Amino acid sequence: MREIDYGNLMHKAMRGLIQTVLTDVSENGLPGAHHFFITFDTRHPEVEMAEWLKSRYPEEMTVVIQHWFENLAVTDDGFSITLNFGNSPEPLYIPFDAVHTFVDPSVEFGLRFETQDFDEDEEEDEEEDEDQAPVAEAKPRGEAEVVSLDKWRK
């Protein structure tokens, strides 16, 4: 019997929201006090980042898009951006399905993704400065939810 997969449909819609927001920022800049904390899985096979960052953040990394960023480009599958890590500009590519959380604390908005679209077990069988902070381990597979903003409040 076929069932409607509401969890994956919700994730697709939420990733579309992130894509729309980042596309607007890439074209028009960050409006007002808006800024983003984006936590992503650095183990995702399509993440592109410097080896020294990958070794510093082997599982998960949080980046902040706020004061200084360059080259923000958004596609259907993810976004690329250059961020400053200790006065060292580094390019990153983050696929949307690697994103665990997306938070804009200026308006108390946040999303959390509890599932991953890639399967780490299959991947194994086939063979994280001021702008980022390590975060808890990846969450187990589950449902989508809105994230509490208490973690990012000052």
Rank of each mutant, 00 (worst) to 15 (best):
Phe40Ser: 03
Phe40Lys: 00
Phe40Glu: 01
Asp41Trp: 02
Asp41Arg: 01
Asp41His: 00
Asp41Tyr: 08
Thr42Phe: 01
Arg43Met: 13
Arg43Gln: 14
Arg43Leu: 13
Pro45Tyr: 10
Pro45Asn: 13
Pro45Val: 01
Pro45Met: 04
Glu46Arg: 09
Glu46Lys: 01
Val47Met: 09
Glu48Leu: 11
Glu48Phe: 13
Glu48Cys: 09
Met49Val: 13
Ala50Arg: 09
Ala50Lys: 10
Glu51Ser: 07
Glu51Met: 02
Trp52Phe: 14
Trp52Pro: 02
Leu53Phe: 07
Lys54Asn: 07
Lys54Val: 06
Ser55Met: 06
Ser55Glu: 12
Tyr57Pro: 00
Tyr57Lys: 01
Pro58Tyr: 10
Pro58Asn: 08
Glu59Asn: 14
Glu60His: 01
Met61Glu: 11
Met61Tyr: 06
Met61Lys: 03
Met61Ile: 10
Thr62Glu: 06
Val64Gln: 11
Val64Asp: 08
Val64Glu: 15
Val64Ser: 08
Ile65Ser: 02
Gln66Cys: 02
Gln66Phe: 09
Trp68Asn: 08
Trp68Pro: 00
Trp68Leu: 03
Trp68His: 05
Trp68Arg: 11
Phe69Tyr: 15
Phe69Arg: 04
Phe69Lys: 14
Phe69Glu: 03
Phe69Ile: 08
Asn71Lys: 08
Leu72Gln: 03
Ala73Lys: 05
Ala73Ile: 13
Val74Tyr: 14
Val74Arg: 12
Thr75Ala: 03
Thr75Tyr: 01
Asp76Tyr: 07
Asp76Lys: 11
Asp76Arg: 06
Asp76Gly: 14
Asp77Arg: 00
Gly78Phe: 04
Phe79Glu: 14
Phe79Val: 07
Phe79Lys: 05
Phe79Gly: 15
Ser80Lys: 15
Ile81His: 02
Ile81Asn: 03
Ile81Arg: 01
Thr82Gln: 11
Leu83Asp: 06
Asn84Cys: 12
Asn84Phe: 09
Phe85Ala: 10
Gly86Ala: 10
Gly86Glu: 04
Gly86Ser: 03
Gly86Lys: 12
Asn87Ile: 08
Ser88Tyr: 07
Ser88His: 01
Ser88Gly: 06
Ser88Thr: 14
Glu90Phe: 05
